[in-house]
């Protein structure tokens, strides 16, 4: 027992180191090289040009990456646990579709890019709540949710494709906005931080409950009559988290699927550890990808969503091959 515990402590320490390393990389490297001295300058409040760069560009960007990464990873963790389905991602309830169509319509009607984050957030949340209502709270079933979610996703993504095909002159912008990025200037920073903090505190409060909900659905609902309510609560929470990530960084695929899997392989199904693992590893992947996206073809910046898949897919496949025998 003690041995298992020690192993987990070591693994979480490695996760913390990975997170700090990727945070460091992403803050330090970019168009303007920044030295350690600049960092200490900024920290001590000395006003230099490079300190300004850190304060005004690098840090907000890193924070957005952290918010997006942790929201997506935790949302994916919740969604996969509640549906007991390992290939479900946070967008299953139609968040990517809702956010996508809101953004594409935003491009179509020439709405200022300033409002895109809010547009994505609202679209995603709206469609996901709609899907959950469709499935119905009273006669709620998880299989129904997954199927309705997939259908709505398919329906809306074909409408998006149609919109892209019909508007050739704006197609480039539309595709770009759909692949996610971190450089949207956000006018709702404060409210984003506050919402993120509030949701995270609520997650801290409620996450251990998943250790109970990991039991068979029938047994869980037999022991606690509220277990169905909690299932729905977790779904709504996970939709809110995913929408928040859309607000911070656009639609980023893949993270919500692979990070929960990696965490589960490292820590087993104990959500007290999984929560923090997801909280550390999700942002790490985005920060690393962001660093790569900015530094590969300087000065052009590649869409981060593409880098995440290019970087993440091989990493995940290697991980599966190493852990192969144990995997599912």
């Amino acid at each position: 027992m003690i041995k298992i515990q020690q192993k987990k402590v070591i693994t979480i320490t490695i996760c913390i180191i990975v997170f700090l390393a990727s945070l460091f990389l992403s803050v330090m490297y970019g168009g303007m090289p920044i030295s350690l001295k600049d960092l200490t300058d900024w920290f001590l409040g000395v006003q230099t040009d490079n300190a300004y760069i850190i304060e005004l560009f690098r840090l907000p960007r890193a924070i957005k990456a952290i918010i997006a990464g942790s929201c997506l990873a935790i949302s994916g963790l919740y969604m996969q646990t509640i549906t007991k389905n390992p290939i479900v991602d946070p967008y299953i309830t139609g968040i990517s579709a809702g956010a996508g169509i809101a953004l594409v319509l935003g491009v179509l009607f020439d709405i200022s890019p300033f409002y895109y984050p809010v547009l994505g957030f609202a679209g995603g949340l709206l469609v996901s709540l709609l899907v959950i209502c469709f499935v119905g709270v009273n006669r709620f079933s998880l299989a129904k949710l997954v199927l309705v979610g997939i259908s709505v996703n398919l329906l809306i993504s074909s409408i998006i494709s149609l919109l892209i095909l019909l508007n050739r002159n704006k197609a480039h912008n539309m595709i770009l906005i759909l692949s996610g990025n971190l450089n949207s200037s956000l006018f709702v920073y404060e409210s984003l931080y506050i919402i993120f903090a509030v949701i995270m505190i609520f997650c801290l409060y409620i996450t251990p409950k998943l250790n109970f909900l990991r039991l068979d659905h029938n047994i869980a609902s037999s022991i606690s009559t509220k277990s169905k309510t909690y299932n729905i609560l977790f779904l709504v929470l996970s939709s809110a988290l995913a929408s928040l990530s859309v607000c911070a960084a656009g639609i980023l695929g893949f993270i919500g699927i692979i990070i929960p899997h990696i965490c589960r392989q490292l820590f087993g199904l104990d959500f007290r550890w999984l929560f923090f693992a997801a909280l550390l590893l999700g942002p790490s992947l985005i920060l690393l990808s962001d660093y790569v996206a900015r530094s590969v073809v300087y000065p052009t910046e590649l869409p981060i969503g593409i880098i995440i898949s290019i970087l993440g897919a091989p990493l995940f496949i290697i991980f599966i091959l190493i852990k192969g025998k144990k995997f599912l």
Partner: peptide, 13 residues
């Protein structure tokens, strides 16, 4: 851990 699941029924546990 399987048996312990039942105790996580309360919040903030």
């Amino acid at each position: 851990e399987y048996l312990s699941s039942i105790y996580y029924d309360s919040n903030w546990k």
